[in-house]
């Protein structure tokens, strides 16, 4: 226990008035309720209050001065809860805003923040603190056609509030990717910047193109004579139909490559992909052709071939 005279910062011959003045000065400085953020204030205030308690009682002060009691031997002011322990709690509202006082700026802060209604604040009045906050982000979903996603496009997004956003979809975007449009979210509060629009891209499947990494795969049917004799066929690519040559003696499953016809080259040094064309022989109405049947009956293949045995389907 510190010397009570030292605690109060007074001389040993201090008058009652000196003591009272010293106590008031220190109490105003250290009272816990006047220092809500300072956890040490309570200990300092208790020391000041105990010292004052002891010295303001002439009898105790005399006994202390004669060395009959020490500072710890004095009656301590009983501990009590401080106002600050409750004022910030659930009941604190009873002494703030709910009675005589006008509802202030902060009272509707929470309504504004969490009710989603942003009240425009005038910046001219200057009364009370100004709340500046960035607007919330908005999430949207955008469905993009398969080839538009490969080639890149600009697509208009209709917003629930009737406005529209033109969304630049970069070439080669993948399903599920999120595009961020800066400043296209909710408006900011009190002059704060607006939030962003976050747009999740959904890509519709294509009837014959499949994407594998940066390559495109397509299955192209050919006739029996195109397969056997070879020839020029037209195949779809991401940029439109192109002519390609089927080599003589091609079979179902043969894969031809169109270099650079996959996903275009993109950001981060991504090289362009290729398009792979897989041939699929389709006999078609020729399967019921009398002339073809007659030919095949008389045809003796140069080498025996059992496609099922090759796959292990036949003994």
């Amino acid at each position: 226990m510190e010397d009570p005279y030292e605690v109060l910062g007074v001389k040993r011959d201090a008058s009652d008035d000196d003591l009272r003045r010293a106590y008031r000065k220190l109490a105003k400085k250290f009272h816990p309720d006047l220092n809500p953020g300072d956890r040490q204030a309570e200990e300092r205030f208790k020391a000041v209050a105990s010292a004052h308690e002891l010295l303001s009682d002439p009898d105790k002060r005399g006994r202390y001065d004669r060395g009959e009691i020490d500072a710890t031997g004095t009656e301590r002011r009983p501990d009590h809860s401080y106002y600050r322990d409750f004022a910030e709690g659930r009941n604190g509202g009873r002494y703030h805003g709910g009675d005589e006082e006008e509802a202030d700026d902060f009272n509707d802060l929470f309504e504004n923040l969490f009710g989603g209604r942003f009240r425009a604040r005038s910046t001219g009045g200057g009364a009370g603190p100004e709340i500046r906050m960035r607007g919330a982000n908005r999430r949207y979903s955008l469905t993009v056609d398969f080839l538009d996603a490969i080639n890149g496009t600009t697509q208009r997004l209709q917003l629930p509030d009737g406005k529209t956003l033109d969304v630049a979809v970069p070439p080669g975007i993948e399903d599920g990717k999120v595009l961020r449009l800066k400043g296209q979210g909710d408006p900011g509060l009190g002059g704060g910047p607006p939030g962003d629009a976050l747009i999740e891209v959904r890509i519709t499947p294509h009837p014959f193109f499949k994407r594998v990494g940066n390559d495109l795969h397509v299955e192209v049917p050919v006739t029996l004579s195109e397969a056997v004799l070879g020839g020029s066929i037209t195949v779809p690519t991401r940029t439109g139909p192109v002519t390609m040559t089927v080599p003589e003696g091609s079979d179902t499953g043969r894969v031809l490559r169109l270099r650079g016809k996959g996903v275009p080259a993109g950001r981060g040094g991504r090289p362009a992909g290729d398009q792979y064309v897989m041939l699929k022989v389709e006999v078609g109405p020729g399967a019921d052709d009398a002339e073809l049947k007659a030919f095949l009956r008389n045809w003796a293949p140069g080498h025996a071939f059992d496609p099922r045995r090759k796959l292990g389907m036949a003994p």
């Binding site: 008031r24 009272h31 004022a87 910030e88 604190g92 703030h96 006082e101 202030d104």
Partner: peptide
Amino acid sequence: ELREMAIDDEALPLVLSLLDQLYGVRRQ
């Protein structure tokens, strides 16, 4: 305790009002 600090009846409502505003803001 505020009265022990010589906060009189004139000043007390002002001190309480400022404290109430401070704690209201801290609570929020």
